[in-house]
């Protein structure tokens, strides 16, 4: 009986506190008027975030539901320079509601036109992110993730060549899938602590260099068999299982690296944790 009473009390209290959060819906978009490039600065501090390719008729779009007591949406476009700034910025009380995770219901979906050259700079705070970059015209990617849980996908090949993809992750759980589809000339990752998975599968059209620095945590490298892989490893207290990579001087190479049409050169520095290698088709 007491348990039932306590459960009822908790339910009522939960409902009361949940209703204290006032959510608002905000939408913004811009019609496509022949723009060919777009530089995006997306600053998203807390909540769920989804990025997808958008409609062909819209340059960009953001649909968000946010906690108006603590955040305010931003959406500015500089037509002269082709720069858009989107996101949710702290306002009012700021910070996160930490009474219950159920209250953190901020969500946003951001979409970009597949036809324009996209220079994407993401700054993510405490965010659960699902970022689909496949099928876009990505020319550059910069991503700074704080205490976030993010999945970055390149489900389809990037429509244009990407200069570089630079990712900085703090205390994060980060998964990057299909990096072979990214068509980036250079990939760099700087990880603080957490669990990071880098999947280099995809349609490889050129060779790539990857620079990975990981302070503490578990790093999983999923390497494609059809690409020559060379891994230069500098580790301190980190375990490493070559899983088929052959030691050649100071580096580890996949069999047939010298003869491979396309290569992936990984320069990996890690301090504490483990590096795991998995092979994918």
């Amino acid at each position: 009986m007491y348990r039932v009473a306590l459960a009822m009390l908790a339910l009522v209290a939960g409902a009361t506190s949940a209703s204290a959060q006032s959510m608002r819906s905000f939408s913004t978009f811009r019609q496509l008027h022949g723009e060919t490039r777009l530089q995006v600065g997306l600053d998203y501090r807390a909540g769920g975030l989804r990025i997808t390719p958008g409609r062909a008729s819209e340059l960009y779009r953001m649909d968000a539901s946010y906690d108006e007591d603590r955040y305010a949406p931003t959406s500015t476009y500089d037509a002269a320079r082709g720069i858009v700034t989107l996101g949710l910025q702290p306002a009012g009380a700021g910070g996160l509601r930490v009474v219950s995770t159920r209250q953190l219901r901020q969500d946003a979906t951001v979409a970009f036109a597949p036809s324009v050259d996209l220079d994407l700079a993401l700054a993510l705070g405490a965010v659960r992110a699902d970022i689909e970059l496949g099928g876009l015209n990505l020319t550059a990617l910069t991503m700074e993730a704080g205490a976030s849980q993010a999945v970055v996908r390149f489900s389809e090949p990037n429509l244009s060549r990407c200069r570089a993809a630079e990712i900085t992750a703090g205390a994060a759980e980060l998964t990057v899938l299909g990096l072979g589809n990214s068509r980036c000339d250079r990939f760099s990752l700087e990880g603080g602590m957490g669990k990071i998975t880098l999947d280099f599968a995809g349609t490889w059209t050129s060779s790539t260099a990857a620079e990975i620095k990981m302070a503490m945590g578990e790093l999983t490298l999923r390497l494609p068999r059809n690409v020559g892989v060379r891994l230069t490893l500098d580790r301190f207290l980190a375990s490493f299982d070559p899983a088929g990579l052959v030691r050649t001087g100071k580096a580890f190479e996949s069999p047939g690296y010298d003869r491979a049409e396309r290569t992936l050169d990984i320069d990996l520095t890690t301090a504490v944790g483990g590096v795991k290698v998995e092979w994918v088709k």
Binding site: R24, S25, F26, S27, T28, F29, R30, Q31, H33, P73, S75, Y77
Partner: peptide, 18 residues
């Protein structure tokens, strides 16, 4: 809400509900 029925909007469209 903003209903774009096919007209031309030169700038940005924003909606803030409620």
């Amino acid at each position: 809400m903003v209903h774009d029925m096919g007209g031309e909007i030169g700038g940005e469209v924003r909606t803030l509900r409620h």
